[in-house]
């Protein structure tokens, strides 16, 4: 039961927020995270076209052997990605709350430029209270 990290990807596939909470995954450079976020954006678009039955959403949960990525796509195209352990059951509710915090602390912030990296102390503290600095959650 651990939350490893949170990404926010804008509608063009750029990583605008990335934060680690717990150890367990590799430590990557910010450049590598940017590349991964772009890849995920592309994969998400393809997965919605591969459906064998009718129309489909893009990938919602991607699982490895020890961790999973839960993806929340908002109607405006922003993606919230939560990296958690496989047994974490609260990923969906956490993402929904992250979205609320994003709406309150980022979108309502007059100094924030849309689609640009999020540098907002308010958002940081909201996320910290929501997920914690990590080690325990």
């Amino acid at each position: 039961m651990a939350i490893f990290g949170l990404w926010v990807i804008n509608k063009a596939g750029g990583l605008v927020y990335q934060r680690d909470f717990a150890d367990g995954l590799a430590q990557l450079t910010s450049n590598e995270y940017l590349v991964l976020a772009g890849t995920l954006h592309g994969i998400h678009a393809i997965t919605s076209r591969l459906s064998p039955t009718g129309s489909s959403s893009g990938a919602q949960v991607i699982e490895g052997e020890t961790f999973k990525m839960t993806i929340l796509l908002t109607v405006t195209g922003t993606k919230f990605v939560l990296l958690t352990s496989l047994t974490e059951m609260t990923a969906d509710t956490v993402l929904q709350k992250v979205y609320e915090a994003y709406a309150d602390a980022v979108m309502k912030n007059p100094f924030h430029t849309p689609e640009m990296p999020i540098r907002s102390e308010g958002f940081d503290t909201r996320i910290t209270t929501l997920i914690g600095t990590g080690q325990s959650s």
Binding site: L25, A26, Q27, L28, E32, L36, T39, L40, G42, I43, I46, T47, S48, L50, S51, P52, T53, G54, S55, S56, S57, G58, A59, Q60, V61, I62, E63, G64, E65, T66, F67, L83
Partner: peptide, 30 residues
Amino acid sequence: GVILSLRNMIKKLSGRDEQFVNYRTSTYKL
């Protein structure tokens, strides 16, 4: 393309030789 990219992504993120297992959308699971 999707499975290859996801396989590489999972390997990179885990930092180990970890395999990609599955993904799920609203209508199917791979």
